[in-house]
Design a protein around this nucleic acid. Structure first.
Lengths: 118, 118
DNA sequence: CGGTATCCACTGAGATACTG
DNA sequence: CAGTATCTCAGTGGATACCG
């Protein structure tokens, strides 16, 4: 039987849960152009706190989307990069991102119009 | 200047917020094959409560992604359908959905492996 | 049928401070 | 540098019951 996101028991629901948190998409996008260190990600992804960044990265790692490499040096150095699975997610995500960047204004206008007549 | 989701001030962030809630994606997908009534959506989208369904639909309506048509009949009849903007969102969303349905298992396996060694 | 109303619980997320 | 440790809180979502 075909998978169906609309079915709550379907595993594909967990994917949407992962994607559906506030930072995951952003971080995957931030990693789309290659390897980055913790503090680089912190800069690139606006306003994310270290705690949340850690949480999200751990979640991505757990799900096999991100690879974490620790170098035994002082000061510490840790690199994050997308796995193959993570990179494969990039494509659909890029589509969403493009849509977002192209249609955000239209959405905002619709919202203002709706709010105005209320 | 190019839009950039990573910038917290960028309007495209609001798009991700909309998409990033628990039910929006699911409901848009449920509406992808045409017009549906409230109770049809309730059935199709597993485990959604009426309150949350209403909330989400109102949000989608506000943002110009969904159209709501009320028929003045007894018993009441209300139809929901995607707007043009909403339909345009369908494409990127379908990409995500497909990815989810194809890779959910791989993700779950990675997760189990990660949890096992902990 | 298509919702509201009410109340509650939980988690995601933020602020701040600290450490190996 | 790359995180942890606490604490706190708001918002999102859920259960249940009821209404036009």
């Amino acid at each position: 039987m075909r998978k169906n996101v609309l079915d709550p028991a379907c595993p594909s629901r967990v994917v949407l849960n992962r994607i559906g948190d506030k930072w995951t998409l952003l971080i995957v996008i931030a990693l789309s152009d290659g390897v980055h260190r913790f503090s680089e990600l912190r800069e690139r992804v606006g306003e994310v706190t270290p705690k949340v960044l850690t949480q999200t990265l751990r979640g991505l790692e757990r799900d096999g989307l991100v690879d974490r490499t620790v170098y035994a040096v002082v000061p510490p150095k840790v690199e994050y990069r997308l796995t193959d699975l993570g990179r494969s997610l990039l494509e659909p995500i890029a589509a969403v991102k493009d849509w977002a960047e192209r249609n955000a204004d239209a959405m905002l206008e619709a919202r203002e119009r709706a709010d105005a007549e209320a």
